[in-house]
Design a binder for these strands. Structure first.
Lengths: 124, 124
DNA sequence: GTCGTTGCAAAGCGTTTGCAGCCTA
DNA sequence: TAGGCTGCAAACGCTTTGCAACGAC
């Protein structure tokens, strides 16, 4: 049985209201602005239960610390602009990925990160 | 000035001879079969210098420990088995990725991780 | 009142580093 | 012989956990 607590609610809102995926220390700092005495252990425990409850999902980029974003987004990918370093959400998804797998492999899921120049930077 | 040592050479061979990217503990265990007294610190230090020398590259994926593979490989992708947690190399590459990008975006590069069951685990 | 939640501090765990001895060139 | 390399153990930083107090229901 899960209880609705002030702290977990604050952490949840911090993540869902952010415009981008947040690292654990960002979540900790931002939530501490709302609830001063909150401990880092509570952040870790809340991230775990929020993920279990399907409220948030982890986002990983190569060599970067884990970040968290709301799970309410549709399946999407990311595009990193190599010029301005901005991260875009790409709502589309390539088809036929299973075709590149060796015989006998079952595909369940995938992560895709595209890199290049966004429209603003490509035009320059 | 870099010296050619037995230990770094053994670590280098362990990685280059593997059929898939290896985690640090895999590299440590496999190399220890060749050189019994080798220490984990030597593995970490050798990975660093081998990367600096462009011999190996790190492979980072969602929630997974860093793995290492030879830097001499052609463009390829990876498949993570959700049962046995092994990371496989996929030599093929999906086509038409640029099609999912918004208008005006230039695609230069991409990372793709597929997840599912490998042929050994899917058969069970 | 029950028992899930929390802050604190300690424990874990993977990685890095200081050091003295070893080994390559 | 110089100085890069190594094993050991201690240090480090991030994450998890034990525990007693707190608070949601």
């Amino acid at each position: 049985m899960r209880r609705d607590t002030q702290r977990r609610e604050a952490i949840r809102n911090t993540i869902l209201e952010a415009q981008r995926p947040l690292t654990i220390s960002e979540i900790f700092e931002l939530t501490r602005q709302k609830i001063e005495g909150i401990g880092i252990a509570t952040v870790y425990r809340s991230l775990k239960t929020l993920q279990e409850d399907g409220v948030i999902v982890p986002v990983n980029f190569s060599g970067q610390p884990v970040r968290w974003e709301g799970a309410d987004k549709c399946h999407h990918h990311h595009f990193l602009c190599l010029s301005c370093n901005k991260l875009y959400e790409i709502p589309s998804c390539p088809e036929g990925l299973a075709r590149i797998l060796p015989e006998g492999f079952d595909l369940e899921d995938h992560d895709l990160l595209l890199r290049g120049r966004c429209n603003a930077c490509a035009g320059k």
